[in-house]
Write a protein that binds this DNA or RNA. Structure first.
Length: 758
DNA sequence: CTATCGCACTGTAGT
DNA sequence: AGTGCGATAG
């Protein structure tokens, strides 16, 4: 252990050795956070703490797995009993043991996002609401944020602020949808992802003895990526640590990039208030990047207001200046980047795997892919559809789920007529209606179908129930693999796919075989206590893209991914592409969310992935929904301290300055036929450049909305002129609704910094 | 019950 | 432009 500690700097060592009492580690980018965390746990174990008493919460399964491996390397098999995992996986496990206390079956299924959406769609239909007004995505995110703030359906319905919000948004029934949704999930014996945390809190609240049991068990609690936790996660950790008070949170407020899914940066900003005797360690030395990269990152993030004082510095070499590339189009941007990778690779003797191309949205990968393929540069794309999101996989999983839990409504809907067995929508709704009328479950109704729907349909339904009962028997008597195999065969899925001789069909068949292999591995894993289908389903429902194995031998590939996926990774050279206004920072974010501070943190995360070289690029035109659009450079390029930037003389491969190219194109009335340039709409009443600093009015402090009065005229650089129509200052959130003359109504949260009172 | 047509969407991500 | 889902017609 001493040997290990010798390699650490002073704050790192402090973080490792400070084991008793609350601790907050503010870990800047590239400051050796993972190392500190693993050493800290190893140190606890070396001190004689039982692994059984340590709980370590991470943000992804992958992070948990990697950390566990590292610790096992340090301390050996002592690490076996560590509880290490995501919030969801850890508390799903606890809920599985305690579910009955909340009225759930212990084999509850977990709804994924698609299941949730499908259920919501049914509910919105059944309530005869306008699905254009009640969009599934919007409704789901509203319900999700309510659950993340521990608001029950009834509390929602009794909350005047939420209700008036909904009314103003013309969606007064949202609370009722939430209530119906929660009831349906409960009846189906299912939890969605948010329920796993919500119900954990509920369990602890209703059963203090259970809470006490786990409080005494988890003597040491660690939370990684604390800046990305939401309110319910905050409550869980707070309650669990209430007795022993040994809680250690690690995070970096400058890398909080998940507000859009409910992460609450104030968790980390206000942590001090909850634990007065808190000890704070700041890891500020960056070991990853050159001075130029670190300075550039700092020069942008300093524009943010909400942050902890932190000063990231590095001892590393100065390094190259950051290259800024201007391209005429997204396709040319791709060509230049691919060409650059080709040249840099030879020049520095780097591998393909030393390069990453980062972008804001997945759609941007296309141009990059084409260019790389043209130069025969191998690449891999991280993200996109995961294995477990594929239709054929979800179908078989749905059969398994339904076999285990006959109340699982979404699984039922998926499999009842797939493969086709003559039970269509009308039959299904008749069954559902009968079940509801008689107060029995759908399953029971189907078991008695001859009584109310005798005839041909009844036979089909009985065949189906017999089939499922056979599966049930198989699950009880055989091991997971044999049972799954039987289900795949007898359900007819396997046959259906086998008969499809198209390329896609063959791929689907192979995917199914791969799923069966995965079940086989699971069933034969001797280290696992619970090797049933139920346990498999639970694990699989919490698995994602990043958790899947690479599987390929040749891993020397250029990595393409979104900035979000890049967090925690590092590459010798990084290209951040698409540095254009409205794309990065994203227009959508700017309309709905706090403001551009999160986008700025996203930029910070992107550039700090680079070790040696960093290249930024933007295009002047870009394809969007099949049409060519005109773009403007991102405001972030203006915020960068110019000292760190360098613009190569020749940026266009056609040896033509991009500006000339574009003006030539527009003079000709657009490029050749088939092109259809969508001109950017002229900026609203703001200065011509569209990038000039907007000076806030002197009487108006950003984020202080109390100065706004209904009826006031205001101006916003993005949305133009408008009128304040409503303010509510209830709770912590200050909100104002502004009716903009051209854009319509906007609810602004924190973006008041740019708002002028006229 | 199935096939086809038309419309809407097109955002980052983990569980 | 392309896809995927839902509604409607057959």
């Amino acid at each position: 252990m001493e040997k290990l500690l010798a390699g650490l700097n002073e704050p790192q060592r402090e973080a490792v050795l400070h084991t008793e009492g609350p601790l907050m580690i503010i870990a800047g980018a590239g400051s050796g956070k993972t190392r500190v965390l693993t050493f800290r746990i190893a140190h606890l174990l070396a001190k004689g703490v039982d692994a059984f008493n340590i709980l370590s919460l991470t943000f992804t399964n992958k992070a948990a797995r990697e950390m566990k491996e590292r610790i096992e390397k340090l301390v050996g098999t002592d690490a076996r009993n560590l509880w290490m995992g995501t919030f969801h996986s850890v508390f799903a496990r606890i809920l599985r043991a305690e579910a009955e206390k909340l009225g759930y079956p212990s084999n509850f299924s977990v709804y994924d996002t698609d299941d949730s959406k499908s259920l919501l769609r049914s509910i919105i239909n059944e309530m005869q609401l306008d699905d254009k007004l009640y969009k599934v995505n919007g409704v789901l995110s509203r319900i999700s944020s309510a659950k993340n703030r521990l608001i029950t359906p009834n509390e929602y319905l009794n909350n005047p602020i939420l209700m008036s919000d909904d009314e103003n948004a013309n969606r007064p029934k949202l609370g009722l949808i939430y209530k119906a949704y929660a009831e349906r999930c409960f009846k189906a014996g299912c939890m969605d992802f948010d329920d796993l945390l919500f119900n954990t809190c509920k369990l602890f609240h209703l059963h203090p003895d259970v809470l006490n049991k786990y409080q005494r068990r988890f003597k040491y609690i660690m939370v990684d990526e604390y800046q990305d936790t939401n309110y319910v996660q905050y409550m869980i950790t707070r309650q669990l640590s209430a007795i022993n008070n040994n809680i250690c949170v690690v995070g970096d407020d400058a890398q909080s990039i998940y507000a859009f899914r409910g992460a609450d940066i104030s968790n980390i900003l206000n942590f001090e208030k909850d634990y007065p005797d808190l000890y704070v360690v700041k890891l500020e030395q960056n070991y990853r990047s050159t001075k130029n990269i670190v300075h550039l990152a700092n020069s942008v993030i300093k524009h943010n207001q909400a942050q902890l004082r932190k000063d990231v510095w590095t001892d590393n070499e100065e390094g190259n200046l950051i290259e800024l590339i201007k391209a005429t189009s997204d396709n040319e941007e791709g060509r230049i980047v691919a060409q650059s990778i080709f040249e840099e690779k030879n020049q520095n003797h780097w591998k393909n795997a030393d390069f990453a191309i980062l972008y804001r949205t997945n759609a941007q990968s296309r141009a990059m892919e084409e260019a790389l393929r043209r130069l025969n540069i191998p690449y891999k794309i991280i993200g996109g559809l995961s294995f477990y999101q594929r239709k054929e996989i979800k179908d078989l999983i749905a059969y398994l789920r339904y076999t285990v839990n006959h109340n699982d409504e979404e699984a039922f809907k998926r499999i009842i007529n797939y493969p086709k067995r003559g039970i269509g929508d009308s039959t299904v709704s008749k069954i559902v209606v009968t079940a509801v009328d008689n107060g029995v479950s759908i399953w029971e109704a189907m078991m008695n179908i001859e009584r109310f729907m005798p005839g041909r349909v009844a036979n089909a339904v009985t065949e189906f129930t017999d089939l499922v009962r056979g599966f049930e028997l198989a699950v009880q008597t055989k091991d997971a693999y044999d049972a799954a195999n039987q289900i795949a065969k007898e359900s007819g899925i396997l046959k259906e796919l086998y008969e499809d001789k198209t390329v896609e069909g063959m791929a689907r068949y192979e995917n199914l075989q791969e799923l069966l292999n995965a079940i086989k591995e699971f069933a034969e894993d001797k280290e696992r206590e619970d090797r049933t289908i139920g346990a498999f389903l639970q694990e699989v429902s919490l698995l994602t893209t990043t958790d899947e194995k690479d599987g390929e031998e040749n891993n020397d590939k250029v990595t393409l991914m979104t900035i979000h996926m890049a967090k925690g990774l590092e590459f010798k050279q990084v290209y951040v592409v698409g540095m254009e206004e409205d794309l990065f920072p994203s227009q959508m974010m700017m309309q709905s969310r706090a403001d551009l501070e999160e986008e700025r943190r996203l930029f910070y995360v992107a550039v700090t992935r680079a070790e040696k070289k960093l290249t930024l690029s933007y295009a002047l035109t870009r394809y969007k929904y099949g049409r060519l659009h005109q773009c403007e450079p991102s405001r972030f390029l203006q915020e960068i301290d110019a000292r760190y930037l360098y613009v190569p003389k020749k940026t266009s491969q056609q040896d033509m300055m991009a500006d000339d190219y574009f003006s030539a194109m527009t003079k000709l009335g657009g490029p050749q036929s088939g092109f259809n340039i969508k001109r950017k709409e002229p900026p609203k009443p703001t200065p011509a450049a569209g990038m000039a600093e907007h000076v806030p009015s002197p009487n108006f402090k950003p984020s202080d909305t109390s100065l706004l009065k209904a009826g006031q005229r205001v101006e916003h650089p993005k949305f133009g002129f408008g009128e304040v129509v409503m303010i509510d200052t209830g709770g912590n959130e200050k909100k104002a609704k502004i009716m903009f003359d051209t854009v319509g109504e906007k609810t602004l949260l924190l973006s008041f910094a740019k708002l002028m009172i006229l």
